[in-house]
Simulated assay, not measured.
Amino acid sequence: MGCDGGTIPKRHELVKGPKKVEKVDKNAELLARWKYCALSQEKLRRPIVACDLGRLYNKDAVIEYLLDKSAERPNSEVVAHIRGIKDVKELNLTDNPAWEGERSTSKGDRYEDLHCAQFICPVVGLEMNGKHKFCFLRTCGCVFSERALREVKTEICHKCGEPFQDSDIVILNGGKEDMERLQVRMEEKRAKEKSAKGKCKKTKVAQTVSKSEAPKVHEGSPEATSSEPRDAEPKGEKHSTPAAESSGSRPAAAAGSKRSVQSMEGKSEVYKSIFTSHSSAKRTKQQTSHWVTHTPYHF
């Protein structure tokens, strides 16, 4: 049986089959991950920062998010693990000399190479376009390809010379397995920092408590017995120190009694003349001045 015009429909035109799964364009995915900010979806421009999970952001977009977390923004779940500006690291990127920017394709008369990246690896020269694995060092922020770190094994940065460890290497825009490994490492790192802060607080509290209790003297201690007044001793008994007995000087007076410098036998006459109690410091009546008033009414 035909339709209007004598055409015969085919099976695929009458029977609806299952919907085809839409496949994501790999080139578009690479552009979105390596050339656009993961938070604001704007093109990456310096300064560029990366988190512990290896995602790339514009620094100003992260600062705006931290200043106002209540604002509704798309892709806010991507930065949910960022608590402050210390959780991101500014990247030290190397420019690609073959990169001409967006002005070369503004007229539309040239072929646009999507695989030409703005940044390259300073050691091997690979372009940071998503085809090769790249990573950055948490200590200094320098970016290298994974091939450069694997082939040239060293404990210092190839670009700035700062030392680093294997735990400081973070893969940029890694796969599912890399993201899970970085997630576990980030949680362990934060747990260690939290325990270290708790220990520091406990030590500070212990130091303050020890300082506050240091001047206190409990009853029955040797210090308390030694600090008792000497007036409790019998009046008839006199104790002398070993230094006083050896020098032949008189025994020390009881506590609270005043002792004149002039009566000390061990002091020289020159030393005694410094004080006003010396005979040379005293004046006779002839040396003292007469009493004079300050007004001229008394003659």
Rank of each mutant, 00 (worst) to 15 (best):
E102M: 08
E102Y: 04
S106T: 02
S106W: 13
S106R: 09
G108K: 04
D109L: 12
D109W: 04
Y111R: 09
E112S: 04
E112D: 04
E112Y: 10
E112K: 11
D113A: 06
L114F: 08
H115A: 12
H115P: 01
C116S: 14
A117I: 02
Q118Y: 02
Q118K: 14
F119C: 08
F119Q: 10
F119L: 07
I120M: 02
C121P: 01
V123D: 08
V123Y: 00
V124R: 06
V124L: 03
G125Y: 03
G125Q: 08
G125T: 01
L126A: 08
N129A: 05
G130R: 01
G130K: 00
K131T: 03
K131Y: 08
H132P: 00
K133N: 06
K133H: 09
K133M: 06
F134T: 01
F134Q: 05
F136A: 05
F136I: 01
L137N: 07
R138H: 15
T139N: 12
T139Q: 10
C140E: 06
F144R: 02
F144Y: 10
F144P: 02
S145G: 15
E146M: 12
E146W: 03
R147H: 13
R147M: 05
R150D: 09
R150C: 04
E151A: 13
E151R: 07
E151F: 14
V152G: 11
V152K: 15
V152T: 13
T154E: 13
E155K: 15
E155L: 07
I156M: 12
K159L: 13
K159P: 01
G161Q: 14
G161R: 13
G161D: 07
G161P: 02
G161L: 04
E162Y: 06
E162I: 15
E162A: 15
P163Y: 10
F164I: 08
D166T: 05
D166R: 11
S167M: 08
D168N: 15
D168E: 05
I169L: 12
I169F: 06
V170P: 00
I171Y: 07
L172G: 00
L172D: 04
L172H: 09
G175K: 04
E177Q: 10
E177K: 12
E177D: 13
D178N: 09
D178Q: 11
M179S: 15
M179R: 12
E180W: 05
R181F: 06
R181V: 01
Q183D: 08
Q183T: 11
V184F: 08
M186K: 08
E187T: 09
E187S: 05
K189C: 14
K189H: 13
R190I: 01
A191T: 13
K192Y: 07
E193G: 03
E193Y: 02
E193S: 08
K194P: 00
K194V: 03
K197V: 00
K197C: 04
K197I: 00
G198Q: 14
C200G: 03
K202L: 04
K202I: 03
K204P: 01
V205I: 06
V205R: 11
V205H: 11
Q207C: 03
V209R: 13
K211T: 06
S212N: 12
E213G: 06
E213T: 15
P215C: 12
K216P: 02
K216E: 11
H218S: 10
H218N: 14
E219I: 05
E219H: 08
S221W: 04
P222N: 12
E223Y: 12
A224H: 07
T225S: 09
S226M: 03
S226T: 07
S226P: 01
S227M: 13
S227H: 07
P229M: 02
D231E: 15
P234H: 10
